[in-house]
Amino acid sequence: MERIDIAPGITFSRIVYGMWRLGDGEDTAPSDVQAKVESCLEQGITTMDQADIYGGYAAEALFGTALKASPALRDKLEIVTKCDIVAPVGRHSAARVKYYDTTAEHINASVEASLKDMGTDRIDLLLIHRPDPLMDPDETGPALDALVKSGKVLSVGVSNFRPWDFQLLQSSMEGNLVTNQIEMSLLAADAFTNGDLAFLQERMIAPMAWSPLGGGSLFSEGHKDLMAALTRIGKEQDVDATAVAIAWLLRHPAKILPVLGTNNLARIARIGDAAKVVLDRQTWFELYTLAIGKEVA
């Protein structure tokens, strides 16, 4: 599978495995988690996407049980995780409200908890999960720089930031923010025209795309024509409609890294099919037109 340079000495697999729902269902034993990771590795998918809040602050520990049971896995992987969302569940059950915390104290505590839960000595990429209206960039930026200098975190970035949020944080940092993980899919295509993607592309920053299948809504009754086109193209190339929808993101020259999550082993085994799909310009626009519900101007 194609690999993308994220930072000096750090490359990610073009498709990233998302662990948001790792704790859902019954297949959460270390052997089950390991099987999911191994299936990804067989396809060249080496980058795993986590966040401290996933699974009510429990998903990282579930992942960690598999890494501890099979220590050799760690050096085959790149781990992405996120921090700054405080929700009144799990370790933060005493919180009165859900809020964001980008203070140095909270970021450092979150990193220590993530390292402990996942049983690793380093995080390949740490993201600030959501823009914090109370963020003091002169505190947050140096805190991120210090984590990189410590070696606990190898690179840092953001998630869900608009260009001005990105610039504000970057202005107080010595190092570089290396990505912005934003929502992008056929059903969430605003980033292609509102400047979010262009901002990253201009700076040669590889974007990451969360919910690349629209949270599953892509396959709902309301998108029959789009699904019919995805299914037709998939049959022509011997893949399913999901692979075509992901390939639509891969086709963009910004080198988007889709974060694709499923707990179904059969589906995990087919994630890499998206890399096989070839979409010419007219086919890309055919899907885009169906997605936005109108012909381009």
Rank of each mutant, 00 (worst) to 15 (best):
M135S: 00
S31N: 03
L134E: 06
G23L: 06
A72V: 06
T102A: 10
E26F: 04
K76S: 12
K76N: 08
D138C: 00
D136S: 05
R130P: 04
E26D: 15
S31P: 01
E26L: 11
A69I: 05
M19S: 14
R74L: 11
V37H: 10
E42H: 09
V37D: 04
Q43S: 12
L127V: 01
F63W: 08
A58D: 12
K149D: 15
K149R: 15
L126T: 12
D101G: 14
I45A: 12
I123E: 05
A29E: 11
G141F: 00
V89F: 09
R21A: 14
A61D: 05
V16T: 05
A95E: 06
E38K: 14
T102E: 06
D84P: 00
P131W: 01
R74D: 02
R130Y: 05
E105T: 13
D84V: 04
D49Q: 06
C40R: 07
Q34H: 15
T102D: 13
S110K: 06
E26C: 06
G25T: 06
E105L: 13
I79P: 02
D124R: 00
A95C: 05
P71D: 04
A69R: 03
K98C: 12
D24M: 13
S93D: 12
L67A: 03
D117N: 15
S70L: 01
T120P: 07
A35E: 12
Y99W: 12
N108T: 15
V89S: 07
L22V: 14
P131V: 00
F12K: 00
P131F: 01
D121Q: 05
L41R: 12
L147Y: 06
K98I: 14
A143D: 04
E60V: 04
R91L: 11
P137V: 04
L115S: 11
E38P: 13
P71W: 09
I107W: 03
T140W: 01
R130D: 02
I123C: 05
K149F: 02
D136N: 14
A35H: 09
A61R: 15
P131A: 01
L147A: 09
P133D: 00
S31M: 05
L22E: 10
G18W: 09
G55Y: 07
T28R: 13
K76Q: 15
T47C: 10
G44F: 11
S93R: 11
A146Y: 03
H106V: 07
L73R: 00
V80A: 02
L73V: 15
M48K: 07
A72Y: 13
A58Q: 15
R96C: 01
A35W: 09
L73S: 04
K36I: 15
D138G: 00
D132Y: 02
A87D: 12
F12C: 06
T140K: 00
P137Q: 02
I15T: 05
E38H: 10
V89Q: 14
E105S: 11
A113K: 08
Y57C: 14
T102P: 02
K82Y: 00
L77F: 03
L67E: 02
Q34I: 15
T46Y: 05
L125W: 02
D124A: 06
G56A: 13
Y17I: 07
P88H: 02
V148H: 00
W20L: 15
C40Q: 12
G64K: 00
T102Q: 08
M19K: 03
H92P: 08
K82C: 10
G25R: 10
N108A: 14
K98P: 05
R122P: 01
